[in-house]
Simulated assay, not measured.
Amino acid sequence: MLKIENLSKRFGGLAAVNEVSTSIEKGKINAIIGPNGAGKTTFFNLISGVHKPTSGRITLDGVDVTHLRTDEVAKLGVSRTFQTTALFDNASVLDNLIVGHRLRTKSGLWDVLVGSSRLKNEEKVCREKARDALDFVGLSHMANRMAGDISQEERKRVAFALALSTDPKVVLLDEPAGGVNPDETVGLADLIRKMVKHGLTVGLIEHKMNMIMSLADKIMVLNYGEKIAEGTPAEIRANPAVIDAYLGSEHADA
């Protein structure tokens, strides 16, 4: 689905991502792991259009998206979450999600000024999509709560829902279990499996190795911006370079 060829990003003299080639495979959970500073988030930023690559090529279903803007990439079906969940804390959870589906609407300033039927119809659709996304992540009962009043785990679920409200094909999750407890981590892992079961493709950055090893179909390992390994969880656990650079001996053959 997403093909990445010789992708590089330099910030001055620093190669944050260096000649990385891989693919985000359709209908699978594609994990990216590595030490802090390995280039994982920069890699997601390149795929989603936040940064433009120094060199290399990114294609989505055969379409070159290398130099597209973030909103253009999103309209083609790539959505993402971030390490820190930024919400409009003084707005309701539902209103936060209505913003997400605005990506798919066509109303402009004139529609707002005249209160056009197109605007009204699109607002209805946005609200329905937001409610569907909330239901999917198990937070229907939170629709009218202020976003600033919900827990960290609930904020993570709202971030999932916000990504889903854009009608994506690929969802990039950047440390979705960061800052939540083990029981909550299990619940978020189940939600990720549910996303794939419903036809989505997932790219996943996460430091919680038990979660990654039980979830991922494929794992790519970055270190100092370079791909040092790629394979199934079993292959990654047994890879000496990965053990040395990141996992440590306690994960070997676990």
Rank of each mutant, 00 (worst) to 15 (best):
V20R: 04
G231L: 14
T185K: 15
S8F: 10
L97M: 10
V170K: 00
D167K: 11
R10N: 13
I150M: 02
A189R: 05
N45E: 01
N223L: 07
G12F: 06
G231I: 14
V170R: 02
E122H: 07
K28A: 13
L87F: 05
D149H: 11
I4D: 02
I243H: 05
L139T: 10
L7P: 08
G115Y: 06
G108S: 09
V20M: 07
P182I: 13
G199T: 05
K106E: 13
K194N: 06
E153N: 10
E184G: 12
H101P: 00
D64E: 09
G199M: 03
I24C: 05
N181M: 12
R104V: 14
E154A: 14
D174L: 08
H141T: 14
V17A: 03
A229Q: 12
D183F: 13
T84L: 13
A91I: 05
A147D: 09
E154Y: 09
S165H: 04
K26W: 02
H198L: 00
V186P: 01
R157H: 04
H207I: 11
V17P: 00
A133P: 06
D89Q: 13
G56T: 02
E19Q: 14
N90R: 14
D183L: 14
E206D: 12
T42K: 01
Q152H: 12
V242A: 07
G13Q: 07
P176V: 10
L191D: 04
E226Y: 04
D135A: 15
H51Y: 15
P176C: 05
R127V: 01
D174K: 04
G187A: 13
H207W: 05
T41F: 03
L68N: 01
T201N: 04
H101V: 02
T22W: 03
R155K: 15
K194Y: 04
F11C: 07
S21M: 08
V137I: 13
L222C: 11
F160Y: 07
T41K: 00
A15K: 15
L46V: 03
H198K: 09
N239W: 05
E153Y: 11
P35Y: 09
D253Y: 08
L134M: 13
L113K: 06
S117F: 02
K52N: 11
L222Y: 12
L172I: 02
L172Q: 04
S79P: 06
L200A: 01
L204N: 00
N121V: 08
A159S: 13
M220T: 15
S48W: 01
E123S: 08
G138F: 12
G179S: 05
R237H: 02
